[in-house]
Amino acid sequence: MRIEVAAAGEYYADLGAADQLHEVKDLRPLLAAVCRERFRRIDRFTQLALLGSGHCVRDGRLPADTGLYISSGFGSIANTVNVQRQMFIDRRVPKPLTFINTLSNSAGYYVARNLGLTARNQFVSRDAAPLEAALQLATLDLVRGDIGQALVGVVDEASLPLDEHARRLGVGADVPLAEGSHWLLLRPAGASVPSATLAAVDTLADVAALSAWFARFDASPDARIWFADDVSPPARAACPMLERLEAALGVYRSRTAGAVLRYLSGTTGEELITVVEDDGRYHVMRFVGRL
């Protein structure tokens, strides 16, 4: 089954380097444009999820058989940090809503409520490849006919202070950081040729499997671009010489999803291949066409 990318939308913000920036943008004024009701006491992770999903589903309406899939590298990290500080430094029991918001699927609750969704509502993660994990789930459900459409989002927030956030990300305080909420609406491709499709999303066991995966393609490499962060020399050698997508993104766990959104809404290339190396495994995606 061909999977059509029917729509895409996002919220993204460059934050600059941790040693130069000490606050993040207040998102509350932006929420009114995408929310049917005023949600009180929601955390930043949920705010990002509402913004990104709202920008993807522009009229705010989806069929009842739409599955919701949210992923993230760090989840609701700022809230979890606050809870640990409250307990271990202030010696206070966390407040009920603060505790509930440490559960990353709280964001899914609010997105479902905002869009009127009642079908499956999954939160799934994978260390280096959160988007790939969510897409593997969504495409399984689409192929089986369990859902008619899939709304897939990857959300990662920056937590304050940013120098601590940089440490969790394993980067220096001088590295530009970012946060983002990137969303795709997927559905089975109909009889007409869709403008953009998700052609593949796979997890490959090793470099040999990565080479074999690349060998399946015989289209002109001129039309193809790729995006990869920090792949090792053996993996780079396994990949054909493709033009690299210059996504101009700061560092955050959902970076690959940001690159996908930039490709889909851009003008460069006719295919995008992404490669994420993770503990000797490779998570790959292939998008064909653009929105």
Binding site: L103, Q122, A133, T203, H283
Partner: peptide
């Protein structure tokens, strides 16, 4: 070492 799916619902 296969594909891992980490559910948090």
């Amino acid at each position: 070492a296969g594909a891992d799916f980490l559910f948090n619902t």
